[in-house]
Write a protein that binds this DNA or RNA. Structure first.
Lengths: 246, 246
DNA sequence: TTACATTTGTTCGTATGTATA
DNA sequence: TTATACATACGAACAAATGTA
């Protein structure tokens, strides 16, 4: 035991300190999504640690899905535009187990002030400006999900309805390439609920039909909330697959 | 490319082969839940690999929650009776985020034949004998969950209603200590549904109230299904927290 | 096709630090 | 204090995958 202030000392262990410094470089935009970071050898020299220690630091970031390794090629900053990555956060599958990807239709767009719930979820002050838009997701020709999506307007200055309509890729890719907002992790909570009249109309089911209601907060590097989304899922033929529960 | 059958070769890498052999030892009962396995040094001698390779093998089993490391003490086989482990699979939390643990009441017990759905989930033949029992879980004095639980009778010979009532610990601990069945992983699928009349009575809600319906298969070492459980959750004040979704 | 350079992956061994009993 | 066990850090050698000349 010593009486140094631990907050001023290094991050407990060397490899964690290296991981922290690499995260800082990522956060500062030194290495951009889709690009390769320098080779392990070079990084070990830069941070003045052994190759093993550097690899352990990278291990941590790979485990968090921030970096992706490719033997023989290099280590890359994760993006949201690879097929494999595209729907990392899309957990709705058909009840027979078949996994298909949705087509998205924007059915509502506007600005609003954060109410208590949205302000809490986005960690912004009440009445702060938010962008609010609505998507309908169709699977195999059947509308299955209605997404009510809220963004902190301050972080998404210049976002237009057209950008959402014409994005060539996923929403999270648009956030990443258009606004520098990287979704690293999501926090998801689920409830049962009954279909409201407008949602029933969008989903083609009866008002009062049972739905799965998903509350999702998308988080960036420092647990910074980027997006709050309420998804209403018609689980007549589909279901939520809790992928991570091992 | 060569034309050797890869299934006849070793497990690709040495550390994975060691992990496989350790899993075999666990599966064979050589190391029992709650016990410490031999020290890394001894194991590295036993498997004739370096300490680093052995540690990497253990890393794999720790990541799967099969082993638990304690610096200075040893590496232990995971059990379902530690506070921390107790509710590893219990993902229902109060909407304000407070996490409390349920009290369980057995309200139904009997034997039945597997219908198509249960046979599929448990990977047994249709009409095979199953144990079917029903629990009501109470959180903070309020009944919140009804569990309909199905076990393959062949794997749980001698299981009685009294054993379920008088178990000093969790169900999964009873499976482990009483029948040698270790729950390693669960597969969970979620839907919205309406409360049936009997479930509404047990939960103290109106028939037709919206519920979260959870279909869970508990799996053992070789993806062997051990238990199928349908949980009906009243999410008026509680919600499902998708812990693993990162 | 072949050869080669580059990059990550695996395995080894050693030394030292930290936690536990 | 001492012994034991896991954790961290170092560096070296070789294997495997990739891309290119």
């Amino acid at each position: 035991m010593n009486d140094l202030d631990p907050s001023t000392s290094l991050g407990a262990t060397l490899y964690k300190e290296v991981a922290r410094r690499m995260l800082a470089a990522l956060s500062a935009g030194e290495w951009k999504p889709g690009e390769a970071i320098p080779a392990e050898k070079k990084l070990s020299e830069r941070f003045a640690v052994s190759i093993g220690t550097l690899r352990k630091a990278i291990d941590e970031l790979v485990a968090e899905n921030i970096l992706i390794r490719h033997q023989g090629r290099g280590t890359y900053v994760a993006t949201h535009n690879r097929e494999q990555q595209l729907f990392r956060f899309f957990n709705i599958v058909r009840q027979d187990g078949v996994r298909t990807y949705p087509t998205v239709e924007l059915v509502g767009f506007g600005h609003a002030k954060a109410d208590k719930r949205v302000a809490d979820k986005l960690a912004i002050s009440r009445n702060a400006k938010v962008v609010h838009y609505t998507n309908v997701l169709t699977l195999n020709g059947e509308p299955v999900i209605v997404d009510e999506i809220y963004l902190p307007a301050a972080m998404f200055a210049g976002l237009t309805e057209q950008m959402l309509r014409e994005r060539p890729n996923t929403l999270y890719n648009l956030y990443q390439t258009g606004f520098g907002m990287n979704v690293i992790r999501i926090d998801e909570r689920l409830r049962g609920n009954l279909a409201s009249v407008p949602h029933a109309a969008l989903l083609g089911c009866a008002p009062g039909a049972p739905l799965l209601e998903m509350h999702r907060v998308a988080l960036s590097f420092n647990q910074q909330p980027i997006e709050y989304r309420v998804s209403s899922v018609n689980t007549a033929n589909y279901e939520y697959f809790a992928a991570g529960s091992q």
